[in-house]
Every structure is written in C-alpha cells, then in structure tokens.
C-alpha cells in the first residue's frame, strides 16, 4: 500500500481490561497466592489502514469491541499493545493523548455535553485552550461552526437541555470539528435519534465530510447506516476483525459466514413484488468475551 493509503494506521492493537482491584481484593489474592484476575480481551490484534478522505465503517454486535477500538483510535483508552498513528504521528504517547488530530462524536448527545456549560462555550473551549483561536475571536468562531452544522448561531448562549436530541448531536459535531481534526471518530452518532432526525444528521455528516474532506471512522450496529456512509467496512466479532474490505464487496458478496449471517438478520422492507422477508436467524448467542471459544470465535455458531 502507498503511504497515502496509510493516513490512519492501526497496528496490531489489543486491549485487555482487568477488573479494578480493591485493596481488600489485592490482599486476599496475596494471601491465597492467586495470580492477578483474568482480563477481558476486548480487542485483539487489530491491524487496519485507511486512506485520507475515506470513511471506515466499523460494525458488529454488542460486546464485539467496536466501541473499545474506536476509543483507542480516539485516544480515550490506551491500547495494551500496538499503536495507532494518524498522518504518521502516534495518537498516544506514554498512555497520554498527545494530539488533537483525532476528535470524537459520541452516541448519546444527552450525555456527551456538559449540562452546566453553555453550548457555545463547549464548542470554543478546546480551540481556545489549544491555541487554535484567540479568546477574543471565540464568539465569531462558534457562530461560524453553528451555521455550518445547521444551527441558528444566536443559540450559542443556551444550555444543552434547551435543545432537542438532533440539535445536540449537531452541537457535538460542531464541537469535534471546531478542533480541526484530521480524523473524526463517530461512535454510534445516530443510534439514539429518531428516524426522521437520523436522516438529517446523516445528511449533515455527508455534507461536512465532502466540504472538509474528512477522514472518518463510523462505528454503528446499524448495517444500513454503515453501508450508506462508508467506503470501507470492518466487521468485528468478539474483539477480532473477521472481515475487512470495500463496502460494496463486503455487503454484496460477504466472505465471512458471520458477515453473511449478520446481513441476513437485518429486517428490511420488502421490495416491490417480493414476499414478506423471512429471516434466517443465527443460532445461539454471542459467547462471553471473558471466555471466548478457541480458534475461530464464530465456529460454534457457524452454519458452514
């Protein structure tokens, strides 16, 4: 691959969560001479690359590690192993986020905005502290971003609770983009929105992506949304990427049985002349990530 294609470079990233030990717990383990408690392998050995200006869709069911991977790319969690680089520079160094090049839009716009901070201040906060703008310019800057995400600039003096869900998600997008990121991570950005509002926010995303030539990672459990917005797709199952490729080919001719089964599980509105769509549900449930099956994680449920 050409370096241009390696704008985002995720190399062999793993993340193991260990349950936090209390003093008593440590003492008990020391006395009983047990080792440290077993960890939960949320992400294991993920390697992927993304070209500048492209969008990667990250799909999978709950517990598959897609959000954890997103948070590692965003520099919120530090990986247990491996590195994430954006434009050649690491996102984290010594367990601390060192760059503003990656910004995040979170799922729940009711939780991701500080309820006690005016929305305009929330948008201006990062850019001022990182010297992107002078404090005296903040008002103008905020108004420009508000207009850009389709909000009335005069509303910047209000608090988050005065906005609807869709409007808050617009504010969250403005806050992330005001940092002028090289990579935007969207973690289920439309999952908590109503259908009609979801379309508005997806359109805003498409529009901004084109105008700003954004490179994005779009995490979602909704396959139709991912199919719509992404150039490439990574399908995750129990911490591993099981399929990675161009969106069209992954959705059109899925190579992995899990991808195929997942696509079959999605209810859709029957097309003209088609009978009511019958599902072929996947057998069984996702195994516990604390104790994943050996070998291929999907083998116990695999129809092939």
């Amino acid at each position: 691959m050409k370096p241009r294609d390696q704008y985002l470079k995720v190399e062999d990233v793993s993340k193991t969560f260990t349950s936090r030990q209390t003093m008593g717990g440590k003492l008990a383990r020391a006395i009983t001479r047990k080792g440290p408690p077993p960890g939960l392998q949320a992400v294991s050995g993920v390697t992927l690359e993304l070209a500048k200006g492209q969008t990667l869709g990250l799909v999978g069911e709950s517990g598959c590690g897609k959000s954890t991977l997103g948070r590692i790319m965003a520099g919120i969690h530090s990986p247990s192993a491996g590195t994430v680089r954006i434009d050649g520079l690491p996102v984290m160094e010594h367990g601390k986020k060192t760059t503003t090049a990656v910004q995040t839009v979170f799922q729940d716009p009711f939780a991701s905005l500080d309820p006690r901070m005016k929305v305009g201040d929330a948008v201006a906060e990062g850019p001022i502290l990182h010297g992107l703008i002078m404090p005296s310019m903040a008002q103008k800057y905020v108004e420009r971003w508000f207009a850009r995400v389709g909000l009335d600039p005069s509303l910047s003096h209000r608090y988050p609770h005065q906005f609807s869900g869709g409007q808050r998600q617009r504010i969250a997008i403005a806050r992330a983009l005001a940092m002028q990121p090289k990579l935007l991570i969207c973690d289920e950005p439309v999952a908590s929105l109503d259908v009609s509002i979801q379309a508005q926010v997806i359109n805003l995303f498409l529009e901004l992506r084109r105008e700003l030539e954004l490179t994005c990672v779009f995490i979602s459990h909704d396959l139709s949304v991912v199919r719509h917005v992404s150039d490439r797709v990574a399908v995750m199952y129990l911490g591993r990427i099981v399929e990675l490729g161009e969106t069209q080919s992954v959705f059109g001719r899925p190579a992995h049985p899990y991808t195929a089964a997942l696509l079959d599980s999605v209810p859709r509105i029957a097309a003209e002349g088609e009978a009511l769509v019958e599902f072929k549900p996947i057998e069984g449930e996702i195994p516990s990530p604390l104790n994943p099956p050996p070998g291929c994680h999907f083998a116990p449920r695999c129809p092939r």
Partner: peptide
Amino acid sequence: KDYIEAALATPLHARR
C-alpha cells in the same frame, strides 16, 4: 459520563 470522556478526548488538561 460521556461529557467527561469527551473533555478528555479533546484533550483538555486534567485540572480543567
């Protein structure tokens, strides 16, 4: 809560 995570992801200084 997410807003703290959002602030850390910006990243903002811990004191702030």
